[in-house]
Design a protein around this nucleic acid. Sequence first.
DNA 1: TACTCGCACTAGAGCGCGCTAGTAGAGCGC
DNA 2: GCGCTCTACTAGCGCGCTCTAGTGCGAGTA
Lengths: 334, 334
Amino acid sequence: MADVAGKAGVSRALVSIIFRNQPGASQETRERVLRVADEIGYRPDSAARLLARGRSRTLGVMFIVHQIFHTDLIEGIYPEAERLGYDVLLSGTTPGRGEAKAIEALLSHRCEGLILLAPDAEPAYLDELGHRAATVSVARRAPGARVDFVHSAEGKGVRQAMDHLVELGHRRIVHIDGGRGPGSAERRRAYRAAMRRHRLEAEQRVIPGAHTEESGIETGRLLLAERDRGLPLPTAVLAGNDRCAMGLLMTLTRAGVEVPRDMSVVGYDDSHLSHLMPIGLTTVRQDAVLMAENAVRFAVDRLENPELEPREAVLDPKLVIRGTSGPAPQEPAR
Amino acid sequence: MADVAGKAGVSRALVSIIFRNQPGASQETRERVLRVADEIGYRPDSAARLLARGRSRTLGVMFIVHQIFHTDLIEGIYPEAERLGYDVLLSGTTPGRGEAKAIEALLSHRCEGLILLAPDAEPAYLDELGHRAATVSVARRAPGARVDFVHSAEGKGVRQAMDHLVELGHRRIVHIDGGRGPGSAERRRAYRAAMRRHRLEAEQRVIPGAHTEESGIETGRLLLAERDRGLPLPTAVLAGNDRCAMGLLMTLTRAGVEVPRDMSVVGYDDSHLSHLMPIGLTTVRQDAVLMAENAVRFAVDRLENPELEPREAVLDPKLVIRGTSGPAPQEPAR
DNA sequence: TACTCGCACTAGAGCGCGCTAGTAGAGCGC
DNA sequence: GCGCTCTACTAGCGCGCTCTAGTGCGAGTA
């Protein structure tokens, strides 16, 4: 910076002003300084800037490296943060790198805001984080913690999906549970409520699972094995999420079960994965971009006004009807 | 830091020594200082540390947010970087956030090393980067640029896959091209060479495509349409990568083409996606962890010795035979 | 006793910026 | 001429840390 200032014949302070795009420099000088900076290859050092400014204007995002839906969220976080003048730092969790480590990395890089995608940590820890930075939890509720919360109205999404299936004549509708996955409990509850509402208590069935392809594959094998033992297949399956739905679909399709002719499958998330299906996966869309924007705005709002009480954004999910759901098959005469 | 020092009754310098785990403090004092720091909730500020130290010991990783294979690489980068004492910063590209922006972000955060996963930039730009930071390009060659290069021996991988298919009796083997995707040119060349070597020039066929699911789906539709016009299906397809293979598989399976009975499909990458198939995708494994480790080590080596000439690591890929490849179907009498 | 040595610790400069308080000079009204 | 404002610019402190060059002190040695 001193080099630039010297070569352009101005003070360091003026260079600073120019690089921050602030008033106080003539157009002429501005251009000259920028030209010189470009020649020298100068670029402001964000560490020093950050140190001097006291504020980093940086949001840290913790995500699970292998969660496709998280990459959708990230795609929404970047532009919104940029719009509000914030930098974004990513820190991923992997099987060998836990949440605590990922979060510590963000914190030590002076992130003022923390956007945690489906954090698995205990509320007490989240609360601690909430006191240290403007923290937003996406998709996972943290009761009592000083963090904002963005999620979608799981109940509404499931209800739409169930209404859709029932309308198509389905009665034997099975739900694959998401285990400890975020939102699973709410989805399971909503499934049960919907079955009750449609007077299908007798057909209710929740198969334990997870938000993974393997879970879908396993469930598929289970159902096929039951069929081979003479039990009827369900006519529709509401999977815990898209990944699970895809695993299930692959297993069924390979076994000659035609979707949606023989069975309908509905996912949850509308993640990029849906691209895989030539006919498209009927799924409940969580608007990743909208969730991302809300999360960013929550964090920024709280940074500008730290006294804000924890807030919650509930986004309406929307059923996206594609090719994997269709009329219920005719029951064979028994 | 001053607070900690004051409360523990020592100087700031000693606190610094203790937090850097350096000799020069008694065990007793160490424990006391750490205890006080914990009480206060002090954590060293990496921005200031970085500024003072002059070195950041940080590697920046640019990746494509939606590339599953990149997340595999990231999973390998973290532990290796940690082992060597380096921090990792992630910066993703998305449709709305180009490579230049992602890289600038890393640079302004003082990354000393740059690991670029499949960069699409011009060699001239990469060369410029190479002069500014220890830069490693993964999977994409940058002729003439001052960057290290890590990739797998595409030729060997394709050859193994082709030998495998020919051994199974396949002759009508089609290759779906990866377009501008990294490694595509080499893979295409190796496919042609293998066909020639097996005296199958007459059967050679390269279908233009891309490294996406959509490309696989389109190709599937194309092949099915040809079949409906009376043309024979290929007995095996070597896809440009796993994503393309998966799209193709979905399309074929849905149309009643049974894999591998009616057609074999081989992918490339062995990305996490393979989990989707209940029978597993036969694919050419690029060892992501090994590639990641090499990339990290290249960057670190160059940081320790900037005079190093650009190096290249060629990793041997390995065919992983799973469920989507099998004996060639009997040709129907014509 | 006088000295060296090693250990535990400290003072203070400086990393590259941002920011506050200030100056110099031009323009303007009276 | 004076005071005033406005624009363009500068001096220099301080952000939180690391690091070099020390200091003080007790133990060991001649």
